[in-house]
């Protein structure tokens, strides 16, 4: 109970601090803000492409085929014992498995 109350206070304080930061004057010039935005969107575009274009695997399948909106990836559950890996693995191990020997490979 005490702990919960304490967490709540910390949470509120943290929110207040973050809100303060968000309201501070933007230290970037307009050009720098643009750079940042463009960099971010290029990364989004690249990620979206990798997710959907099937170029990571070898048989045309993309991650997005089986995992629309990233479903059934359960990122919060890793690392864990995974039968198909035969050991405790990380999400990264599982992704590589999908691409190299799983449904997304021509094996």
């Amino acid at each position: 109970m005490k702990l919960a109350k304490y967490s709540l206070i910390v949470g509120v304080a943290a929110t207040a601090v973050l809100a303060g930061v968000a309201q501070a004057k933007d230290p970037r010039t307009a050009a720098q803000a643009d750079d940042e935005w463009n960099y971010l969107m290029a990364a989004v575009e690249k990620g979206d492409g990798l997710w959907h274009n099937g170029k990571l695997g070898s048989n045309g399948l993309a991650c997005g085929n089986c995992h629309p909106d990233g479903s059934a990836t359960n990122p919060h559950t890793w690392p864990k014992y995974q039968t198909n890996l035969g050991k405790v693995g990380t999400l990264r191990d599982m992704i590589n498995w999908c691409i190299t020997v799983g449904r997304g490979s021509c094996v």
């Binding site: 048989n59 045309g60 399948l61 085929n65 449904r103 021509c106």
Partner: peptide, 10 residues
């Protein structure tokens, strides 16, 4: 079936 234009696809 979602067939691909790849020979001997699974």
């Amino acid at each position: 079936a979602h067939l691909y234009d790849i020979a001997d696809h699974k």
